[in-house]
């Protein structure tokens, strides 16, 4: 397919935004400025960018514990994102959720998820709504290779196939679930094979190649929008950092392996292609990166300066109505 230059640029922008957001966030976590734990998406940017470029604003998305990249690619705003990571009132979730529960329902982003395998059945529900409404919306459902061993993932695939729901299942196979290599947690090399057992297409795609992800998603989304039912894409990808934070690696995988994947960096590869094809020069992509970086800095500054939540908000939003007094209070 002939891809217009603005789409190519858009793919690069999405990837660069994720990279810059994550690297800065990871540093802040390691400095102890962002509380808790961040699961960073660095290395996997082509997957979220390639998938989300085919989604509309009103399409739905379910995410994982490694969810910042999905939200950014769906159009998430840096300021409320960082504010949430800092636990501030201006955060997407008013400081209640943090990294692992970051969400923007206005963008159809139904939340990062602290439960591995928590998202896929929720995507089925969103797709059910989409089908009922009949406006051609789809639900993209991200999950990991590790998550593909949860029963929920299989229940969700079966239901989506049974009811021909507009779900695009996206398995981000980064070769590890935490510290366990894929060949030590499942016998198939390609999670995409599992699609066959639910009677839906299963496609393996190079997750370091944003164009490949984009093309495969385009097809799957078109199929879903037109009532053709779900499909499963498996993107082979890699996380550069450890399971949590930005420290590079440890005993469970070799430095060599990390280096081999880094050599196929999705952003670097793609910007070279764009330069070669005359779409965007290397200087221009450097400038883009610098622009994004200053946007990141501005957002971090905003988040750091913004106020903490009032402790009085603790009991707000447990229910749609204020909780009965019998159950409130310490």
């Amino acid at each position: 397919m002939a891809v217009p230059p603005e789409v190519l640029l858009d793919l690069l922008v999405r990837m660069v935004r994720i990279r810059e957001f994550e690297e800065a966030g990871g540093r802040l976590m390691e400095q102890g400025k962002i509380p808790g734990a961040l699961h960073l998406y660095v290395g996997e940017e082509a997957v979220a960018a390639g998938v989300c470029a085919s989604l509309n604003r009103d399409d739905y998305l379910t995410s994982t514990h490694r969810g910042h990249g999905h939200l950014i690619a769906k159009g998430g705003d840096f300021k409320p994102m960082y504010a949430e990571l800092f636990g501030k009132a201006a955060g997407y979730c008013r400081g209640k959720g943090g990294s692992m529960h970051i969400a923007d329902l206005d963008l159809g982003m139904l939340g990062a998820n602290g439960i591995v395998g928590g998202g896929p059945p929720i995507a089925v529900g969103a797709a059910w709504t989409a089908k009922r409404r009949g406006r051609g919306q789809v639900a993209a459902c991200f999950f990991g290779d590790g998550a593909s061993n949860q029963g929920t993932v299989h229940e969700a695939m079966n239901m989506a196939a049974l009811w021909e729901l507009p779900v695009v299942f996206v398995c981000e196979n980064n070769l590890y679930g935490e510290y366990t290599r894929q060949d030590r947690h499942q016998t198939v090399a390609d999670v995409a094979e599992r699609a066959a057992s639910y009677g839906m297409p299963g496609v393996v795609v190079d997750g370091m190649d944003v164009m490949a992800v984009h093309e495969a998603t385009h097809e799957a989304v078109a199929r879903a929008r037109s009532g053709g039912g779900p499909s499963l894409l498996e993107a082979k990808t890699y996380r550069y950092f450890n399971h949590i934070g930005i420290s590079p690696t440890s005993s469970y995988r070799s430095e060599d392996e990390v280096a081999q994947w880094r050599a196929r960096d999705p952003i670097e590869t793609f910007r070279q292609v764009l330069a070669k094809d005359g779409v965007l020069s290397l200087e221009q992509s450097d400038a883009l990166r610098a622009r994004v970086r200053s946007e990141v800095e501005e957002a971090i500054h905003y988040a750091e300066e913004s106020p903490l939540p009032d402790p009085d908000t603790l009991l707000q939003d447990v229910y749609s109505e204020p909780a009965a007094s019998a159950t409130g209070g310490a």
Binding site: P35, G36, E84, G87, K88, G91, C93, G95, K96, G97, G98, M100, H101, L308, P309, P311, T313, L314, L315, V318, A323, T327, G328, G329, A330
Partner: peptide, 25 residues
């Protein structure tokens, strides 16, 4: 009885600290 208030555990440290039951209570 001393126990946590009737909400999920919030993320923000100020809220989590307000949630956690402690010796003062």
């Amino acid at each position: 009885r001393v126990g946590a208030p009737f909400s999920p555990v919030p993320f923000s440290p100020v809220l989590e600290d307000a949630w956690l039951p402690n010796r003062r209570q």
